[in-house]
Structures are given as C-alpha cells and as structure tokens.
Amino acid sequence: MDIRFSGFGGQGIIKSGTLIGKAASLYDDKFATMTQNFGPEARGGACSAQLVISEKPVLYPYIVRPEILVSMSQEAYEKFLDDLVPNGILLIDSDLVKPHNIRKDVNMYSISSTRIAEEMGNRIFANVVMVGFFTAITNIVEPDAVKKALPGSVPERFIDKNIEAFNKGYQYGIDILEKTKTKQKKKKEKTEA
C-alpha cells in the first residue's frame, strides 16, 4: 500500500507518516518504509512524507502513484492529486483544502482536523486528528497500534492530548463510514422498491 501524506512544513506531516509507519512496523507486524521529500524550504513550503506498507520487506522505497493521498494544504492537494490512482482514497482537511477539479474516480473523505484541534486548544494536534481519521477510513493499521506508537514520538506531557486528538479523528471517521453505509443501504432499498 503506497501512501502520501502532504501539507506544508510545520503541520507535522512527516510526524503523521512516522506514526502510521511506526504503528504498522512495530505493533502491527508489517513492513513500513517512510521517506521524505526534502526541499530547501523549512516551515511553510510544500512538504510530503511517503509511506510504503507491505506484508513483505519493501524493496523500492519511493512512491510513484499512491493509493492513498492525505492533503492538509491547497498547494499539496493541487500538486499531488493527479498522481492518485483511480479508485484511490483522498483524505483532506476541509478548512484548508477547497477541492475544485474534483476527481470522480477517487473516494474523497474530509474532516475539519485543524478546527477540531483548535477546539481542543491548539492546532498543533491537527495532524494527529488526521491520523485518527486516516486510521478509521483506511483500516490499514489497528487504532491500538497507532496509540502505542505515540509515546516516544510526541512529548510525554502531551500524550493524553494526542490520544484525545486521535480518538476525535478516529470517531469522526467511523461516523462517516456508518453514514455512508446507511446512505448506500437506503439507496439500495429505494432502487429495489
């Protein structure tokens, strides 16, 4: 599974990739290789982390066409959208990305991760809200594995806050999946009727 996390520097994009990769490889018995796109820019520039998760050791470390794209900035969304494979999964922060040229061949899910984090007191948790959302929607790593990956990856005094952020994103994702299921069910019933 080829995944790209994207946004701008300072949002914790690389950390998102690290958390999922660490969860998959240390606590979920998979192989996970993460690489980062380093540019000369620091904070503010487009930034992305590439993660390959596999049942077998990963040979080729980079990603050409991701199956999942996470975008937390407009610039990153526009830069990387075309690379997403048909039927791929697109996750966006709905306050930061206005999805024009919507691709009909991909499954898009959105969450106000930055706003949810701000409501918790600090937008710095937005990436972990997104990680929770990612975990629920994609079902690639176990939620417990991601929670186990938090210690050592975030400052110890903020672990509880990070777990809270993760849970909010995760629950939001589960609710969306439920709603989609219900909608599909109703649609099906309607057509059958």
Partner: peptide
Amino acid sequence: ECVGHMTEK
C-alpha cells in the same frame, strides 16, 4: 541520502 533519510524498523 536515500538510506540516510529512510525510516524503517
């Protein structure tokens, strides 16, 4: 650089 900046178990 690839191996240096690659994260794995």
